[in-house]
Design a protein around this nucleic acid. Structure first.
Lengths: 338, 338
DNA sequence: CTGAAAGCGCTAACAG
DNA sequence: CTGTTAGCGCTTTCAG
């Protein structure tokens, strides 16, 4: 491995000079600079970033922790962070939290050990106090998809309420009269918000959403299928179905067809997230676009900015970072004229 | 930040002792060890991994480079590597290569600067010589989804030929008589192999595959649609369609339905990869399971092993690491009895 | 404009 | 069993 010392020796200068030309700062004579550059090239010298981080007490590494990578929602998230990291010349350290408090904390610790300058955290299981404490310790920490009022300016999140309201309104506008909802068994945060948004919108329009028309299941394809089966078994009638997310919507569509109901002719289905699978199914899924990738990119830039600003600045700003979901009209919702 | 020095001071021992209890090696008195442990706990001391890597000239970091993260194939790959890294107590550095030779090389360099002990590389654009050279320089380098004979023992790859043969055979066994193929415009490596496998299998069974029944397009959903439209426009007749991969297959199914042809009643469709979208579409896609995640996990363990073995051992082994694809029967292929 | 020197936090001999 | 010490490769004053 060729070090800065080797370069200095060959170039006949001190390592300080080499360091200066590498960083393009400080005053270095033109000839000298040119020679050093040439030698760096020839020797294929690559600065050791561990040594750098150690000496400068700062790194150009950004960390991201998500529950996993195999669900496309999180893959998009990671993809957005990767883009942000790359554009800012940062390295990306990735750690998965596996849906557990403990491994979530481990993941964060692991990133801290590595001296990550900024950290993007999708936290599901840590309580607010832990997050607030963490934010106090790590200037470059940004939460994604979660809102904690005390650290509002460190949160990049989505307005689930308005999103689900838009979805419900779309169904109303297209003439639907009777509704059903399949949601996640984990009735915290997002699922809770989304159901809430649906309820208020329907309520405002004097449409009843009987409790038995809301079915909970695990938020995946099978869950969507089961929920619809349960709904049908209970004898629920509905011409519109709102799913917690796209995967549940897909499962719902499968179950509906299996029961002899056509989508969208007999029942309209609307999802949430706008995952790639939405254009794979038949009919193509009408859904709410969750701009995760864009949000992740935004969060990354924010995290880098925060990590560079003085503590004072970071604390002063009270601005939060709220995104909204857009309606994506495809083929799973049909206008009812009756 | 609390350092090993702080711990040593508070515990009233030398840093060497602290280091020993951290690594659980060397001889340390029981009481002493207990006290140090307690203090580490109290001070919430976290070793600085940059300093570690620098001092020990080795890191517990593994790097992975893939073209991107937003395609689910690569997300699965990354997911497998993440799992391997986690299980071995490694950190994961991720770099995307964006489908370009230059950024692929940049990504690799970036990982090397970070002293990655092992690197998993999905290379599409580097030529073999570059890869061979790289393998010589980086003991822990493993290629995934690519075979380079000179460094066979560093390659974890899939037998595309046998995979596509199994697919073709399945269609033959289910009574299909006339075939069409939609493949990628990038007729290198994988796509080439897969078409080849189809041709030989059909050939052996005295079934003609007219050149005009093979249509090339970009390997995505739209490409699949276009290819089928082109096939139909040319007046091609077929009762079985082999797609280069699942996304093209999905596009093909869409186009087939749009043209009034039912899948699988009128034409059977078979994909390749076994991506999550395969169970989202209707009918559910029959496809070849590409065990990427498993392969990535295997590659990770292999890379770590290689990085730890002496150069001699690493070079000596001539074993390569070939995986095969399994047939996954779902609903897009129908038995023909006529 | 350039060099010398003091560390960054940790590991790994080497003494004792 | 425990402490001392010499770096790892680089950044960063501080002199000159």
């Amino acid at each position: 491995m060729v070090t800065i010392n080797d370069v200095a020796k060959v170039a006949g200068v001190s390592i300080a000079t080499v360091s200066r030309v590498i960083h393009n700062k400080g005053k270095v004579g033109d000839v000298c600079r040119a020679r050093v550059k040439k030698i760096i090239e020839e020797l294929a010298y690559r600065p050791n970033s561990n040594a750098r981080a150690l000496a400068s007490k700062t790194s150009n590494t950004i960390g991201v922790v998500t529950p996993n990578l195999s669900m496309s929602f999180f893959a998009s998230l990671a993809s957005g962070v990767e883009k942000g990291a790359r554009e800012n010349g940062f390295k990306l350290l990735m750690a998965n939290s596996l849906y557990e408090t403990e491994s979530e904390l481990n993941a964060i610790e692991s990133l801290r050990e590595n001296n990550c300058k900024a950290i993007i955290l999708h936290s599901e299981y840590s309580d607010e106090n832990t997050l607030i404490k963490l934010a106090g310790e790590i200037p470059g920490l940004v939460l994604i998809n979660r809102y904690v009022p005390e650290i509002a300016n460190r949160c990049v999140w989505l307005d689930n309420l308005s999103g689900s309201q838009v979805a419900a309104k779309h169904l109303l506008n297209t003439g639907h009269k009777s509704f059903a909802v399949v949601t996640s068994i984990y009735q915290n945060r997002d699922p809770g918000c989304r159901v809430e948004g649906i309820k208020t919108t329907l309520g405002k329009n004097r449409i009843k959403l009987p409790l038995k028309n809301i079915e909970e299941a695990t938020p995946n394809i099978e869950g969507g299928e089961q929920a619809v089966k349960a709904l049908l078994a209970k004898g629920c009638k509905f011409d519109a179905l709102l799913a917690y997310n796209d995967v549940m919507a897909i499962g719902a569509i499968h179950a509906l067809f299996d029961a002899g109901l056509r989508v969208p002719e007999d029942v309209s289905v609307i999802g949430f997230d706008d995952l790639p699978i939405g254009i794979a199914c038949r009919p193509r899924l009408t859904t709410m676009h969750y701009p995760v990738q864009e949000m992740a990119l935004y969060a990354t830039n924010l995290a880098i900015k925060l990590s560079e600003s003085t503590e004072a600045t970071a604390t002063v700003s009270k601005q939060t970072h709220l995104f909204i979901a857009d309606l994506v009209i495809r083929d799973s919702v049909k206008e009812r004229t009756c």
